[in-house]
Write a protein that binds this DNA or RNA. Structure first.
Length: 635
RNA sequence: GCUCUCUUAGCUCAAUUGGAUAGAGCAACGGCCUUCUAAGCCGUAGGUUGUGGGUUCGAGUCCCGCAGGGAGUACCA
């Protein structure tokens, strides 16, 4: 039986006036996976034994959580290290002596500890091989090793990601968002949560009106069908055309002596687009039809890109369906005196008491802004689902927006308002700096994926390992490798950090890359295939098998996988999974290089190596599935 | 201006959240395929963790100052 207890820490109650980011958005979705009864995790066992030792030796009561352990560094002998500095105040002895006391106690009381040594204030414990082997057997037997299945009663997390505007195609920035959103969802699932993946499509607003305006004036009835262009790209072209038109008009007006500010308001194209937005909100037939048509083109394009990326959604919200709910909420807030109306008719929230500025909620012409619809969307979602945790995967440029959103929802009386979690990730930069559509430096998602596939094809053909496959199978493998490279490259870096994407260097398949890890997986499958061909059968390893150093290292890497899954769930970090997979694979390749598997004549040892090989493959696949990366059987 | 944030090897990133001698990959140089997939393995070289102080048994990590990047502060989304 497997039990998972999930506890939500609500960190905001203590402070009433401080609305700083840390209070709202520090990771407050903390998961505790309970130990399986009878199968005590070794670190926990050591912690409780240390606690008992401290009580016994020095008469102090310390909780297990306050005892620090870590994996012993490679340069020292041992597997698990207890940090004893904090205990010297109780022992009134030197760190070395204290560590020695504890070591003696542990070796007498914990059978799985075979040796210990002391260095300064560090007590290094050597765990017996038989313990590691029995953990390996558990991993070997469990097809979902390291993960916890959700039940009907598990907590429900809703994860919003992607959230495109419908006026232009997806680019590199969206790719990071989509990969993070998908991966975070998988990681939360693996930690025993129910997850609803959702997408809010920003299908209405001034941006799409700009594309519509340009299409009406310059479009000549161009459609995806008659032009052969992908729908989202076509609409994006008109957005760019609008921008050019607008810039030219502003320049012309400034030439006539208007100031920049006035010219920007008086340009005919922007007035036209605004008029379209106003008509749209009034349900004008002609405008609505054009809007529907152009959005339909865009969705067809997006679907293609999502499919290529391998991401999906359980529930899609459209801003056009939620903004009214938001507007009603704002008007209710106005009635209740939470918000205020300015003379020109615009509605504002005054957040000066919270240390922030005033924020507009409705324009003077009555139309909604981004914030308005986000209020409505949030309300609808909580009506539609019994959400325990709402996660927004949105770039850190919107930190302020989400800080304000949480406060507004709180002011509107929603108790969950302050529990919204903004999973704030860093921007993607190019060697030339930020991506700018006007300067043509945007890396288009479709182009990038196609380019990655081309490189994968070329590399694979040079290596010539897939020659006996037919073309369809080959293309499928090229696709897996290309996406493996792209996804791993992006997910291996800490989501919070700004990352650099160099299109040339990112298309590398050697070293710390997705294809290297996929390659190791393929290699493992090859060994297992050969074993089967030779009629070899393998099963649970014998506990008393003799182990070589590379084997122990690999073994220890395999069995920390569950810990990594838990940690990545707590920290919302696919990067932890990615970096773990790399370390695991590195350990496997060293083992593979130095030690024969099928060539081993001692059947007990050969069996152990096969169990370890198969389990490594499984863990790679499980880990990569949390990143949304597939593993080919051959490459 | 104000708020937030970042700065680790030539480049791209790690560092078990305050622990031991700061690690990988790429790039450079040298070695290993008659043996389970060389998209691999091994080695050499590369660092005053931007800078100055502070906190303590211990700081890349926490606090304060300075320098330099980035983001936000819109009737944009």
């Amino acid at each position: 039986m497997q039990v998972a207890v999930i506890i939500f820490f609500n960190l905001q109650i203590t402070i009433t006036t401080d609305y700083s980011l840390t209070n709202y958005f520090s990771s407050c979705f903390i998961i505790f996976a309970a130990q399986k009864p009878g199968k005590m995790n070794i670190e926990f066992l050591i912690k409780s034994s240390v606690a008992a030792a401290l009580k016994n030796l020095y008469g102090v009561d310390l909780k297990e959580e306050s005892i620090q352990t870590q994996h012993t560094r490679k340069d020292f002998e041992g597997d698990i290290t207890v940090v004893v500095f904090p205990f010297t105040r109780f022992s009134k002895r030197s760190p070395e002596q204290t560590a020695g006391d504890l070591g003696e106690y542990l070796i007498l009381n914990v059978p799985d500890i075979s040796k210990y040594n002391v260095l300064k204030g560090f007590l290094n414990l050597v765990i017996s091989n038989s313990h590691w082997v029995s953990e390996l057997n558990e991993a070997f037997e469990d097809p979902f090793y390291g993960t916890t299945k959700a039940t009907k009663d598990s907590k429900l997390a809703m994860v919003e990601y992607s959230s495109p505007n419908t006026n232009k195609p997806l680019h590199l920035g969206h790719i990071r968002n989509n990969l993070l959103g998908y991966s975070i969802s998988e990681i939360l699932k693996a930690n025993g949560n129910n997850v609803v993946k959702t997408n809010i499509v920003n299908d209405r607003g001034i941006h799409i009106c700009k594309s519509m305006f340009a299409w009406m004036y310059e479009g000549k009835n161009e459609t995806p069908e008659n032009s052969g262009k992908k729908g989202d790209h076509l609409v994006g072209e008109y957005y760019v055309k609008f921008d050019r038109m607008y810039k030219a008009e502003v320049a012309a007006l400034m030439g006539k002596g208007l100031t920049k500010e006035v010219a920007e308001q008086k340009a005919p194209s922007i007035i036209g687009a605004r008029e379209m937005l106003r008509k749209w909100e009034q349900d004008d037939h002609e405008i609505r039809n054009l809007w529907e048509t152009m959005n339909r083109w865009v969705y067809a394009g997006f679907d293609e890109t999502y499919k290529k990326l391998g991401v999906d959604f359980d529930k899609i919200y459209y801003e056009s369906e939620t903004y009214k709910v938001g507007r009603d909420e704002v008007l209710r807030g106005l009635d209740e005196g939470i918000f205020e109306k300015q003379d020109d008719g615009s509605v504002w929230a005054n957040l000066e008491n919270e240390g922030l500025d005033r924020k507009i909620l409705l324009r003077s012409d009555g139309t909604s802004v981004y914030m308005t619809q986000d209020i409505g969307t949030a309300k609808l979602r909580y009506e539609d689902y019994p959400i325990d945790k709402m996660v927004y995967v949105v770039g850190n440029e919107q930190n302020y927006h989400f800080q304000v959103l949480a406060i507004l929802l709180d002011k509107l009386g929603y108790k969950w308002g302050k529990d919204l979690y903004h999973f704030s990730y860093g921007m993607v930069e190019l060697p030339q700096g930020k991506m700018k559509s006007r300067e043509g430096t945007v890396v288009d998602a479709d182009d990038l994926i196609d380019e990655m596939v081309n490189v994968a094809r070329k590399t694979s053909e040079e290596l010539g390992k897939l020659d006996e496959y037919d073309d369809n199978e080959k293309e499928e493998i090229y696709r897996m490798i290309a996406l493996g490279a792209l996804k791993y490259f992006i997910l291996k870096v800490d989501p919070k950090k700004t990352m650099m994407f160099n299109p040339e260097e990112s298309i590398d398949f050697n070293g710390n890359t997705g294809p290297f890890i996929q390659y190791t997986y393929a290699r493992i499958q090859s060994v297992l295939r050969k074993a089967k061909e030779q009629g070899i059968k393998w099963g649970n390893a014998q506990r008393e098998v003799e182990l070589r150093e590379k084997e122990v290292e690999l073994l220890k890497k395999i069995v920390v996988f569950p810990e990594v899954v838990t940690e990545s769930g707590k920290l919302f970090s696919p990067a932890l999974i990615a970096n773990y997979c790399y370390e695991l694979v590195k350990a496997y390749n060293q083992f593979y290089h130095d030690i024969t598997i099928l060539g081993e004549t001692d059947e007990v040892i050969r069996n152990f190596r096969l169990v370890m090989t198969e389990t490594t493959g499984k863990v790679i696949q499980l880990g990569f599935s949390l990143l949304g990366i597939e593993c080919p059987e051959r490459m």
